[in-house]
Amino acid sequence: MRYQEFGTTGMQFSELSLGTWGIGGAGWGDVDEATRLDAIVAAIECGINTIDTAPAYNAGVAECYVGRAVEALGCRDKVHIITKCGNTFVDGAYVRDGRRDAIKRQCQQSLENLRTDYIDLYLVHWPDPKVPLAETITTLQSLKEEGIVRHVGVSNFTQAQMEEASQLCQLEAYQGQFSMVHPQEQALMQWCQSQRMGVMTYGSMGAGILTGAQRTLQHYADNDNRSRFYKFFTEPMFSKVMDLLGKMDVIAAQRQVPLSQIALNWVAQKDFVSNTIVGAQHRHKIQENAQAFTWTLTPEELAILDAAVAVANSL
């Protein structure tokens, strides 16, 4: 595993984080409890010291799994836990709520779910257009001043929103979607780096499409995140992604590595990326992902992939 300092926080993050949206279960298929808990244990055993979760991941279920696994291992002081606020999961729907009282309630519930008395990094999951940004951000600042959360940041914000928020609170982190099939946030993330924020990427393997496991067009249910949130699994994007996978296949064969490791290194080797979040629900997948951080792509390989990524994401 590779590690680097995360922004100005002073925390050393593993370059790979375990994402737990899938471990929460909603919209990602049915995996038994023992397997989910073992996935978290496997991540820590592989040297992953950052776990990303949120109360919106199946109404706190993912947070509860994280809390149970970390407590059982007795490693709370060795693991950086990132969770979020301002977004809840109610009756199968995601509902934004950035009100002061709501965030305070969410924070207290997250502490209970996670079986901890502090949160290492607390993010606003999504901006709430119905609530003044100042109300949301000053609530984060007050939680930091109380010591309940140690560092704060945002996810899925625009630059303008972050500039406004920064007048009220020092933002230490930005989390956004970024991958070979969704590179559109590069300029925003570069700006965040220039502001000395730590930058985390989610969707780093394109919800699994960059593993190459799916090579034929399939239909997913409306509540499946591969149809609801990620747009790579439908045309016209799907065929372009298949062409990209063909370029990745060549490098994978030469290196004798799975495509997933190529996708992860492409993200992690961007100089503006501090941390790459990847979700997995099985031990062997986490071990395979961690192996990506034992090697790096060459400049020549990166050039080939960058060109293919540009074509795949062209209109």
Results as ranks from 00 to 15, higher is better:
3 Y>F: 14
8 T>N: 06
12 Q>F: 03
12 Q>Y: 06
16 L>V: 08
17 S>H: 03
17 S>D: 00
17 S>M: 05
18 L>R: 02
21 W>M: 07
23 I>R: 00
29 G>S: 08
29 G>Y: 15
36 R>N: 13
37 L>Y: 01
42 A>R: 06
51 I>T: 07
54 A>N: 05
57 Y>K: 06
66 V>L: 12
66 V>T: 11
69 A>V: 05
82 I>C: 11
82 I>E: 13
83 T>D: 12
85 C>M: 14
86 G>L: 14
90 V>S: 03
94 Y>R: 13
98 G>W: 02
100 R>N: 15
102 A>K: 00
104 K>Y: 13
105 R>Y: 07
114 L>C: 08
121 L>W: 05
130 K>P: 10
134 A>W: 01
136 T>C: 15
142 S>Q: 14
146 E>Q: 15
146 E>Y: 09
153 G>D: 02
158 T>V: 09
161 Q>M: 12
162 M>P: 04
163 E>R: 11
165 A>C: 05
170 Q>S: 06
173 A>D: 08
174 Y>A: 03
174 Y>D: 03
174 Y>I: 09
178 F>D: 03
180 M>T: 07
183 P>R: 00
184 Q>K: 14
185 E>C: 08
186 Q>S: 15
188 L>A: 05
191 W>H: 01
193 Q>S: 13
195 Q>F: 09
198 G>N: 12
201 T>A: 07
208 G>V: 07
214 Q>E: 13
214 Q>N: 05
220 Y>N: 04
234 T>C: 11
236 P>E: 09
236 P>I: 10
239 S>H: 00
239 S>T: 01
240 K>I: 02
255 R>Q: 07
256 Q>F: 07
257 V>T: 15
260 S>R: 08
261 Q>D: 05
268 A>P: 08
269 Q>M: 15
278 V>M: 06
280 A>S: 14
283 R>L: 09
286 I>T: 09
288 E>I: 01
297 L>Q: 08
301 E>M: 10
301 E>W: 02
303 A>P: 07
306 D>R: 00
306 D>M: 02
307 A>I: 02
307 A>C: 11
310 A>L: 09
